[in-house]
């Protein structure tokens, strides 16, 4: 659990982060979203003390982060950044092994962990372990960057615009990888982005920041339904609201027994995708299949549309 209390950062006369308080529970994926200059990256970097706060405290599992040297704190916290920041002179394997080596793990355990992570990120260890980062594609470099952040099995992972430099297709792949990994390890993640779409897609809670202040910190549906300020509403985009809301649910949540005609849709697709499919194919209802391909029922367009109404 991360407890942030009245955290403030001043640069000369400028207050970049202004008395921000928020709590991230274990296993949550908190997304900090805001425009550039909102203080979101500064807030993130104060958690692992890459920036020292002017005032306020950060506690991780009840322990003040200032109670140990900054570098030891950082070794316990995973950190992944935009443009990956891989060490260009070290191989992929050496990069991933960085923190285990700093922590003094024995060689065999480190090597095992490196291979395990490479496999997890669908990079064949035999092929990729000894390559230099410059020999990888952008998407592969980004995956190695996240693998390095996870190498020492941190309970907490901080990510600063990790997908900012990726093209849309690779980005959505990386995002679903992240969700899968979080599910598997139960890592607590704090992620910074300027993209509300990404925030809604990934976050279990979203913190909206503007001009150094935390405007709202709530689960995605709450943010969409009841934006705390006009700025939050603008960031979501008023015309986008019903669709953003739909993207929070899966077809599974609304499936009912009964037959339907035409191409089936996966139970794991979002309601947004299902609604789009209804509109596009001009159907009132779609058949629904589960991951094994077995028909499990149908979903009705009107039910979906009803879900898109503003929650009361």
């Amino acid at each position: 659990m991360i407890e942030i209390e009245a955290l403030t950062k001043d640069y000369l006369d400028l207050t970049v982060v202004d008395h921000v308080s928020m709590t991230v529970e274990d296993g949550e994926l908190a997304v900090i979203v805001g425009t550039s200059g909102s203080g979101k990256t500064t807030l993130l970097r104060m958690i692992n003390r890459l920036i020292e706060p002017t005032s306020g405290t950060v506690k991780i599992d009840g322990q003040d982060t200032r109670s140990e040297p900054a570098f030891e704190l950082r070794r316990r916290i995973g950190y992944a950044i935009q443009g990956h920041g891989l060490f260009p002179h070290r191989t992929v394997g050496q990069n991933i092994a960085t923190v285990p080596e700093l922590l003094g793990w024995d060689k065999q355990k480190t090597a095992q962990r490196v291979d395990e992570l490479l496999n997890l990120f669908q990079l064949d260890p035999a092929e990729f372990r000894d390559r230099l980062p410059s020999e990888l594609s952008g998407g592969q470099q980004q995956r190695v960057g996240v693998a390095r952040a996870l190498a020492a099995e941190p309970k907490l992972l901080l990510m600063d615009e990790p997908y900012g430099a990726l093209d849309p297709i690779i980005r959505s792949k990386a995002q679903s990888d992240l969700l899968a990994i979080q599910k598997r390890f139960g890592t607590t993640i704090v992620l910074v982005t300027h993209d509300m779409e990404e925030a809604i897609h990934l976050g279990t809670r979203i913190a909206v920041m503007d001009k150094g202040k935390l405007l709202q910190y709530a689960p995605p549906h709450e943010i969409i339904a009841n934006p705390a300020t006009p700025f939050v509403a603008e960031l979501i985009g008023t015309g986008e609201r019903p669709f953003r809301l739909l993207s929070l649910w899966k077809v599974r949540d609304l499936v009912e027994p009964g037959p339907a005609q035409g191409e089936p849709i996966s139970a794991d697709a979002s309601l947004r995708d299902a609604y789009a499919e209804c509109l596009w194919s001009g159907r009132e209802m779609l058949p629904v299949i589960d991951e094994s391909g077995a028909l499990i029922g149908r979903i009705r367009r009107d039910d979906i549309a009803h879900k898109a109404e503003r929650p009361q």
Binding site: L50, F71, G85, F87, T98
Partner: peptide, 18 residues
Amino acid sequence: LPPTVTEAARGVGMTDRQ
């Protein structure tokens, strides 16, 4: 040096000397 690299080096918890 590329700023992301030095940033990453601090972020993974290297000491100044490392």
